[in-house]
Simulated assay, not measured.
Amino acid sequence: MCHKKYSIVIAEDEPLILENIIEKIEKCNERFTIVASASNGMDALKAIEKVKPDLLFTDVRMPIMDGIELIREVRRIYPDIYIVILSGFSEFSYAQQAMKLDVRDYLLKPLKLDQLVEVLSNIYEKLSQRINSVESEIIISTIYGNKAAKTIPSSLQEARFVLYLTCIGNLQKAAVPSTESLNYSEIWKRIDWDKILGKVWKPFQKWWVIDERVPNEKFLILAIGNETERNIIDCADMLKDTLLPITHPFNITLCTDYISIDYSHIWQTAQKLRSYMEQGLVPGSSSIVVPELINNRKLPSTYIDIVTENGIKKLIEHKDLSMFHKQFMTLLQDWNRNSYPQLWIENALSQFVGIIYRQLISPAFDINEIEAKISDTIAVSTNTNDL
């Protein structure tokens, strides 16, 4: 995973001390970069307004605007900027004032390298945790179609994203039996995404796995650098092959697009992939669903042709259950051989049940209940024989 570099502005009025601070920061931690420096609080505030850093190092006693006033202004305008006070022993009372402004870190001058290393390491962890939390909240809100409550950080604005809608088994209704939901939950827990993605797609910056409305579907979202070039479909194939032993006996379907996208297209792409998954998932079969598959697939214009329908009616009329069963299995095997998608099969079976219902004088079943059972059966089946 790529490490983010955090930006620093330094406010220090003594040139030699400023030079020493810059030298030591550059020497001790490559995860920080100094983007501006100033010799007083006023100039530092202008620099902060321009570059919007992650971190501010500030002396407390400076001309024009001192460090305490600078901290007050930064807290008012940019409350998320992390602040470190630079102070001498004689300035400790100033540092105490800063502590009341929610500043928790300070360094005594002259700076000691080991103390600076420790402070920067702690700050790096805190900043990373904070931005990870913000990014996750924004990505989750976006994938659900909700407007992000927070400003979109540059780490998301500048990244490219690859989305994989991942489905274990077949399409589910919103409500599934609790035992099935539990099974899916256990399968998801067995997936070590860090390990798998390290093999399949490297390098990447970050990843998120986000729940969908049904327990057997999740979005896998990768943030990749602009310089990263991969064949998204090839990676989907590798993901599928890696996940299959984990999801057994259920099939695994991944739905994706051909190109990476920027942040502003995540919601639109997620909606497209949801639609592609519904149109393209083949029950009991592991596959990659892409736009080309949906656009080029030619499905029969009718679910059950008139010749087959008339044959079914005659079998019902003559009460030939053996041939009726054979005809039914022939249809299922034909649909399976042609890899028809689940929704098409559900509609075809509903038509099949409708033919039976209309043919019987006094049907002993509720057609709506049967159609619901058809959907439930297909949802949890692992092969055609289950039907």
Rank of each mutant, 00 (worst) to 15 (best):
K4F: 14
K4W: 09
K4P: 02
I8T: 03
I8L: 02
V9D: 03
L18I: 13
N20R: 13
I22L: 14
I25R: 02
I25H: 00
C28L: 10
C28W: 10
E30N: 06
E30P: 00
R31H: 08
T33H: 01
M42A: 11
A44Q: 10
E49F: 15
E49M: 08
D54M: 01
L55N: 10
D59F: 05
V60A: 12
I64T: 13
I64L: 09
G67V: 04
I71Y: 09
R72Y: 14
E73T: 06
Y78C: 06
I81F: 02
G88A: 14
E91M: 12
Y94C: 11
Q96R: 15
A98F: 08
K100R: 14
V103K: 14
D105L: 15
D105V: 11
L107N: 03
K112M: 09
D114Q: 11
E118K: 05
L120Q: 08
N122D: 15
S128R: 01
I131Q: 11
I131F: 08
N132V: 01
I138W: 01
I143K: 00
K147M: 11
A148M: 06
K150E: 05
Q157N: 12
L165N: 13
C167Q: 15
G169P: 02
G169L: 01
L171E: 14
Q172A: 05
A175T: 09
V176H: 04
D194M: 11
L197I: 15
L197Y: 09
K199W: 03
K206R: 03
K206F: 06
V209C: 02
D211P: 03
I221V: 13
E229Y: 07
A236M: 12
L244D: 00
T247H: 08
T247R: 01
T247Y: 06
I252V: 15
I252T: 10
D262R: 01
H265T: 03
I266L: 15
M277V: 06
T302Y: 04
I304N: 11
I306E: 10
V307K: 04
I312S: 09
E317W: 04
S322G: 09
M329H: 10
D334V: 04
N336W: 05
R337V: 04
N338W: 09
P341V: 07
P341T: 10
Q342G: 05
Q342I: 02
L349H: 03
L349V: 11
G354L: 06
I355H: 13
S362D: 05
I367H: 13
E369F: 07
K373S: 05
S375G: 08
N385P: 02
